[in-house]
Write a protein that binds this DNA or RNA. Structure first.
Lengths: 192, 192, 192, 192
DNA sequence: CATGAATGAGATTTCATTCAT
DNA sequence: AATGAATGAAATCTCATTCAT
């Protein structure tokens, strides 16, 4: 038990170290040696937990995506009104990205790198099942446009990443106002 | 004259080689040696045209962004109706991204890499001035939401990248239908 | 313990390899790759011991300067007569330079290269403290000219390097006779 | 004639450029490309005047050594008193090194680099013939120690380089006082 | 004469990964 | 289970030199 805990801790430390390194300097600057040093283990130890750098990144991706989903759906109950539910989820997502910039920025960096493989991306998508279900329900109720969930995602969720990016670069600071305006746009884009 | 042309050709070949390499394998896998080999020059020759790998990527970024803008605004005339004009631009942008997947994917990869520096990004943004002006006009006319252009961009333009990504991964093929649905969403998100 | 010894050995081998390479071909021709090959390690291994080529050279400088000082002062006791003491040191220095041509020649090459940084030079100077102290004593006793130690050094010690150089180039072979003549000159230059 | 002059000017410019570059950064940092740029010619042009970088450096060595000798013996007349004559030459040498730091420093750097070949060094030595002759005379007169001119040189002339070095590094500024003290040492070392 | 373009070879350094202990 | 040492391969970039013009 203590052994297991220690293992888990080390794994977590490694993921955390990677996250932090990717964040200042990009994926390429997160070398295994640096990761090891920050996590206070030997480089060789990383390979006890992850098969390769690729796998380390993929695991981190899933991990972070999981946290994101967990935050997004924490207060969500599937039996509520569609718009209200969507709003709750959307705001939670935005809040997560604002409060966890490292995680958010990491996910952004993963969007277009070949280091994350298709299979992992698919697994990541599964975390969003509740949202997809909600959209299905909305579509059935005639409230939401009857189109591919990918479109719905593209216009209502994906933009959050851009906003966060702007916020980070101080080009468009995200106060409560802006968040509300943004949500309105998200909703307008998908509602019938 | 012939010499100048040869120079230009070589520069172009280098940019093209870089574009292609970044596209399969990501920025980090586009090594100067590979770029040189594909462009059929010696590695040292690259440095006659670009000061460093960073500069090569930044120049490519501007180059591609320029082509993108050129395509986006080719048929646009600033005196038309706001919605029609926006549609024309939006469709042209989507078409460019669909027809020039390498360019589009490259721009996506640049979104979140520290290899493109802020100054270059700013210069890239300038290419979109006509769109920003159009939005201003629309806002004045009370047709478009009176909010930051970054928000407008985030919800109406940025999603195109996601769609293209889905198209590439065969998750959501972009036929004419889908394009039209997508444009509708873009418009709904920004219109009053 | 065995590991530590192996580390020390490797470090020593690297320094030795560098010394030897600098000696035939100059500093610039002592490439890290060659150093590695001669020391029978991979180029990457050098960086486990030295942060950069600069540091490698600086460390070697200190190392050699240390050996030199050690030899110079090995039999010296600070309570002896000034002239006798100086002679002992001077002869020991000359002997070291004659017997350790690689080391001596390396130090000469370091005299005028920007690869050795000022701080390291200063540290190197400290090894000569006993000599400076001896001079102070001589000055107080009115035996040695009351002038800057840099002058004393320039005229009594620095010339040894030139002699060694001539010896190497077979222009002025240093037998016992010459050595004695030379010492006489050194002494004449600094004595009152 | 005009053509010839232009050629000479270019050669001079190249030598000057090399001198300047060697001076800040050492021999290795004086790349042919930089030399060309500073001299305002094409890299290829250098090879019209010098066969290789080696030759460029060797020529520069001779050139500078020549200037040095010219300055050293400018006011010297071989029929004067030995000590007075030597003093005149010595002071002129020191003055040259102080007033032409680039040249002086360059010569120092050449002392221990394999880039200057033995033959060139020998030619350089010839410039000092008048001094050697003076010493011969002094020896015959019983004023100067009857020993190898290399020894005389090592203890009376070579130290100047060290002093200049110290002056450059602000460790021992050379005012008139120090110069006179230094000359005294030089003379003491070689006089009977 | 003079050159700008071009380059092959090689410089320093970093990295993901392995392996003996 | 854990590691520190070690590395081959490759990355970015520089350089002395050549050659078609």
């Amino acid at each position: 038990m203590a052994q297991l805990q220690k293992s888990i801790d080390k794994r977590t430390a490694l993921l955390k170290a990677t996250l932090s390194l990717v964040n200042n300097g990009g994926i390429q600057s997160a070398s295994m040696a640096k990761v090891a040093k920050i996590a206070n283990v030997s480089p060789a130890t990383i390979y006890l937990f992850f098969e390769s750098k690729q796998e380390l990144l993929n695991q981190l991706y899933l991990d972070v995506k999981g946290s994101f989903a967990e935050a997004a759906f924490r207060d969500y109950q599937s039996n509520g009104e569609v718009k209200k539910s969507f709003e709750k989820i959307w705001i939670a997502m935005a809040a997560f990205k604002l409060e966890n910039k490292e995680e958010a920025s990491f996910l952004s960096q993963c969007d277009n790198t070949p280091m994350i493989d298709e299979e992992t991306r698919q697994q990541g998508l599964k975390y969003l099942t509740p949202l997809f279900d909600l959209w299905s329900k909305g579509i059935k109720e005639g409230i939401i446009k009857d189109i591919s969930p990918y479109l719905l995602y593209a216009f209502s969720i994906y933009p959050i990443a851009f906003l966060m990016n702007m916020d980070n670069r101080s080009l468009c600071p995200l106060g409560e106002n802006v968040i509300n305006e943004a949500f309105q746009m998200a909703w307008d884009s998908i509602r019938v």
